[in-house]
């Protein structure tokens, strides 16, 4: 009966019910009363949510930056900060081990062939700082970021590759 009322009965079930109702006045009457009760229920106006509730739901659905969105937006700045930290670490590493190494040709070139190893590094560090400054002055952190990072990366790694 329930399945039949909601159109979920299979053909056999529907036929069986039909046959039973044809021969059973009590069930027929109950079925009619049930349909009438359901009709009354469905005619009754449904309670509606308040406008305030709807507005609050709509406000909540507005996209707002979450933690991941904030991180995504800050990514260029974070990457540059990370690059500066890496440069600083690499710099102290280079200074520490400089006396045991021959001046790398790339660094030497940037350092304008200075004999003083400390001033060679400091000139090289200045060149890196200059590149960072240029990258920042370049404006918005857009598509050129990867290129800028790559060029910083090149500045950092080229002396090492010659060690």
């Amino acid at each position: 009966m329930v399945l039949e009322l909601y159109g979920e009965a299979d053909a056999a079930g529907a036929a069986e019910l039909k046959a039973h109702l044809a021969g059973c006045a009590a069930c027929r009457q109950a079925a009619e009363a049930t349909r009438a009760a359901l009709d009354e229920f469905r005619r009754e106006p449904t309670p509606k949510p308040s406008h305030e509730t709807i507005q609050q739901v709509l406000d909540a659905a507005e996209p707002r930056p979450g933690i991941f969105e904030l991180l995504r937006r800050l990514r260029p700045v974070l990457l540059q900060a990370a690059a500066v930290v890496v440069i600083a670490l690499a710099g102290s590493f280079a200074i520490k081990f400089w006396p045991q190494k021959q001046a790398a040709p790339a660094v030497a070139a940037t350092a304008a062939a200075s004999a003083d190893s400390d001033s060679a590094w400091s000139t090289s560090a200045e060149a890196i700082a200059e590149r960072i400054w240029q990258a920042k002055a370049g404006g918005g952190f857009g598509a050129s970021l990867d290129y800028r990072i790559a060029s910083l990366h090149g500045t950092l790694t080229s002396p090492r590759s010659d060690w």
Partner: peptide, 12 residues
């Protein structure tokens, strides 16, 4: 089924 029976009887 029990819910429908209840609804029907209450309304009657």
């Amino acid at each position: 089924s029990a819910a429908l029976k209840h609804l029907r009887k209450e309304l009657q």
